[in-house]
Amino acid sequence: ACPVAPASRSSQEVWDSFSQCFTPAVREVVEFAKSIPGFQSLSQHDQVMLLKSGTFQVLMVRFCSLFDAKERAVTFLNGQTYSLASLRALGMGSLLDAMFDFSEKLGSMGLEPDEMALFMAVVLVSADRSGIVDVGAVEQLQENLIKALRSLITSRRPDDSTLFPKLLLRLPDLRTLNNHHSDKLLAFRID
């Protein structure tokens, strides 16, 4: 639920509340990661490093459901809908455009919630490895999760052999999104 203010407030105030709504979303990704079978058997250092490099990408997948590519609008969990044009005032136009494209592609695959959750687990453990100490353990966890994702998807769609590879092709898209946009600025009011 994002308490983004109605249009009447200044874009700085909208920006403050938009920045605030990232904090709970990040904490939810940390809790999600801890629920991934095998994640907590990684060293704490490697858990933290994976989360630092993968959380933005997991958030991008989670936020997809808020984006309506046809209407070019975003509906936050509190029910408030914003057109792409009005959100441009926040200065995140390029990120929003990229998000609409990405959510259109991912949305068109029609994944079930459990498939989406398993895909997010794969996204997290496929994140950048720089800083990881036990790369072998992370690669093993990634392999296990990819195998689980493949069998879940192919068991439900035995005659569709294209969906799984198409889904894996979203991983480089997410990495590009991350490289281009995770340096966007947030602003927090200091009272």
């Binding site: 966007k184 600025l185 947030l186 200091i190």
Partner: peptide, 25 residues
């Protein structure tokens, strides 16, 4: 005037993760 602490999305995410793991130590 109110002052603002500005940080990147990536730094904000890192900060919350570090905080979360420190709290659960």
């Amino acid at each position: 005037p109110k002052t603002h602490r500005v940080m990147t999305l990536a730094d904000h995410i890192s900060h919350i993760i570090t905080q979360d793991f420190a709290r659960n130590q």
